[in-house]
C-alpha cells in the first residue's frame, strides 16, 4: 500500500530505500547472506584465512627458511634442507652468550619493573580518590604515547657524559669526572624499563582496583599487620595481574632492537642485534637468522608460558 504510492509521487526516496531496490545490490546480498550457512562462511572464511595467512604464515615461513641452506634463493640452485643453521648457534659463544644474556636481562628487567611499578599501581588504586585516579593515571600514560626511538633518545640525553645526571652529580660535588653511564647494562636497563613500565603498570592497576578494600580490612580486623596483610592478602589476590604484566614485559623487552643498539655497548649485545646482523650483511645469511629467531621465539614463549602457569591462580573447576 505504501511503496508504490511513494514512487509514483516522484518524491525523493531515502538512500537506504534506493539501495535495497538496486538489482545488483539485491543479488549481492542474496549471494552473501542467502542462508545462515552462507553468513557463517562469509565471516569465517576470511577470518580463518587471514589468521592463517598473515598471523601464522610468517612464523611458519620463518621456520621453513631456518631449515634451508640458502635464502633468498639464488638462480639455478635448489635450496637443500639442513640443520646446519641450528648447529651453528651451538657452536659459537658469540651467539650463545647474547642469547642467554637477553633472557637473563629480560627476566631481571621484568622483576625490576614489577618492583618499581607495584607501589605506583598500589598508590593509585588504594590511596587516591576514584575521580582523581583517572587523572593521575592519564599523567602516566602521556609519555607512553611517545615512540620507542624518541624515548630512547631522551634517555641518551639524560645519561650522557654531558647529560643531566652527570651535570647534577658534578654540581653537587659528588664526582669530579663524569660517570660513563652510557653504553652499559645500566643505561640499557634504565631505557628498557622506561619503555615497558606501562605494560606492567596497567595490569597491576586493574587487578588492584578490582580488589575490594574490605579484604585487607578484614585481615586487619583479625590482627594482621601491614606487611602480613600485603603478603598474605593483596599479593596473592593480584597474582593474575602480576602474571600478565610480567609476561608482557618479558616478551616485549626481549624483542627490542633499536634501544640496545643506541643505549648498549659491546658488552651488552643482545640477541636481537645478533639476529638482525644476518639480515643486514649481504650473502646467504637469512636462514641462520631465521633459525636463531625460531630458537628465541620458542624459548621466550616457553618461559612466558611456564611463568604464567606457575604464577596464575589455578581456577577451581575450570576445565582447560
Amino acid at each position: 500500500m505504501m511503496g508504490d504510492a511513494a514512487v509514483s509521487r516522484g518524491d525523493r526516496v531515502p538512500f537506504w530505500g534506493r539501495t535495497v531496490s538496486l538489482p545488483f545490490y539485491k543479488g549481492l546480498v542474496t549471494f552473501l547472506f542467502g542462508s545462515p550457512r552462507r553468513q557463517f562462511w562469509l565471516l569465517a572464511s576470511f577470518s580463518i584465512i587471514w589468521v592463517l595467512f598473515a598471523h601464522l604464515g610468517p612464523i611458519l615461513q620463518m621456520l621453513h627458511v631456518s631449515f634451508l641452506d640458502g635464502y633468498p634463493p639464488t638462480a639455478g640452485r635448489e635450496p637443500v634442507m639442513t640443520l646446519a643453521n641450528y648447529e651453528r648457534f651451538f657452536s659459537e659463544s658469540i651467539f650463545i652468550l647474547p642469547f642467554f644474556r637477553t633472557l637473563a636481562f629480560a627476566s631481571l628487567l621484568t622483576a625490576a619493573t614489577l618492583v618499581i611499578t607495584y607501589p605506583v599501581a598500589y598508590f593509585l588504586a588504594r590511596h587516591v580518590r576514584r575521580q582523581r585516579q583517572l587523572a593521575l593515571l592519564l599523567l602516566l600514560l602521556i609519555p607512553f604515547w611517545v615512540g620507542e626511538i624518541v624515548r630512547t633518545y631522551a634517555i641518551m640525553i639524560l645519561l650522557g657524559n654531558n647529560g643531566a645526571v652527570n651535570l647534577l652529580l658534578r654540581w653537587l660535588g659528588l664526582v669530579d669526572r663524569p660517570i660513563p653511564f652510557m653504553y652499559t647494562g645500566f643505561s640499557l636497563s634504565i631505557g628498557i624499563i622506561y619503555l615497558t613500565a606501562l605494560y606492567m603498570l596497567l595490569p597491576l592497576y586493574s587487578a588492584l582496583e578490582k580488589l575490594p578494600a574490605s579484604y585487607s580490612e578484614a585481615a586487619a580486623d583479625l590482627g594482621a599487620g601491614g606487611w602480613t596483610r600485603f603478603r598474605r592478602i593483596t599479593l596473592p589476590l593480584t597474582r593474575e595481574g602480576i602474571a600478565s604484566g610480567c609476561t608482557l614485559v618479558f616478551l616485549i623487552s626481549s624483542g627490542y632492537y633499536a634501544t640496545p643498539v643506541l643505549l648498549g655497548g659491546p658488552a651488552t649485545t643482545v640477541f636481537a642485534e645478533t639476529v638482525a646482523r644476518f639480515f643486514h650483511v649481504a650473502g646467504d645469511e637469512w636462514p641462520t637468522g631465521a633459525a636463531f629467531s625460531c630458537l628465541m621465539l620458542l624459548t621466550a614463549l616457553a618461559i612466558a608460558g611456564a611463568f604464567n602457569r606457575l604464577v596464575s591462580p589455578r581456577r577451581v573447576g575450570a576445565g582447560g
Partner: peptide
Amino acid sequence: LVFGLTLLPAVVPGIISAISLRIY
C-alpha cells in the same frame, strides 16, 4: 584456535615479528 592465532602477533617479540614478516 582462531582466537589464539588472532592474538599471536601481540605476543611475538618485536624483532622476531619484524624478521618473520621480512622473510614472508
